[in-house]
Design a protein around this nucleic acid. Structure first.
Lengths: 122, 122
DNA sequence: AATTAATACCTAAGTTTTTTATGCATAAGA
DNA sequence: TCTTATGCATAAAAAACTTAGGTATTAATT
């Protein structure tokens, strides 16, 4: 009747993943053309070899928000008598993806500056 | 009497910096031995050429938390009749810094996997 | 001389994002 | 038959940050 509760490892135990979920979703859709939520959780787990597990409690609200903002389009399909909600990027979503990936690059560059501060200071 | 309100640019307009403030603080103290809060905001602005501005509303509570966790020690000094609270890493803080920088490296590596997914997938 | 900007600390309300903990339903496997 | 996997969802709580104040001293500008 009741589901067994077992949490594995959310967001790699690291707070750094906070704020990057949107970027991850957009990049996944940029690669795969169309995906459904559950598929994204599995794909991320696979790509990162289990290091990064996005939780459904974070994912679904995020998808709904992106849809409401006009960045994603949804298409519901029934496969094996089970519903799947396929998401894909809109025109606006494509632009936002480019911008988010730029931000990620900038973020990484900035944080690497902190890692090797000697290079940037006198 | 009243302070002019003028916000410049918080956290580089990017949500990605959420969750990285602690890492930034620890790394700054790892480099500089001891620093005070206001000095940190200026240092970060300088190092990132204005791209990243940490707000005091985020910084001070973060410093208090790190102190409460035993990662930082405080020493109050009066300079020019103005108070400064100098923070430095404790033994525990040094270890946490190593661990946080490891996490940052892992995070960057993982996110770069998303940027160049062809390399990691068949 | 008076106002503003800079230095230096602080906090509290509100927002956003994520975690945690559920809920429902079907299919597959042990 | 019971559990795991698939697939969606939400709601309360926690966490982190933004926004918007506040106090006080010193330096710079008007």
């Amino acid at each position: 009747m009741h589901k067994k509760i077992m949490y594995v490892c959310n967001m790699a135990n690291s707070k750094l993943y906070k704020g990057s979920l949107t970027t991850i979703i957009l990049k996944l859709l940029n690669e795969s053309e169309k995906m459904y939520g559950y598929e994204m959780t599995q794909k991320v787990k696979q790509i990162t070899k289990g290091e990064l597990n996005i939780t459904e409690g974070a994912l679904y609200p995020a998808l709904h928000k992106l849809e409401a903002e006009g960045l994603l389009d949804v298409e519901v399909k029934k496969v094996d008598n089970r519903l799947r909600k396929y998401y894909k990027l809109t025109e606006k979503g494509n632009k936002e993806t480019v911008s988010k990936l730029e931000e990620l690059k900038d973020y990484i560059k900035t944080m690497e500056t902190f890692m090797n501060p000697k290079l940037s200071l006198e």
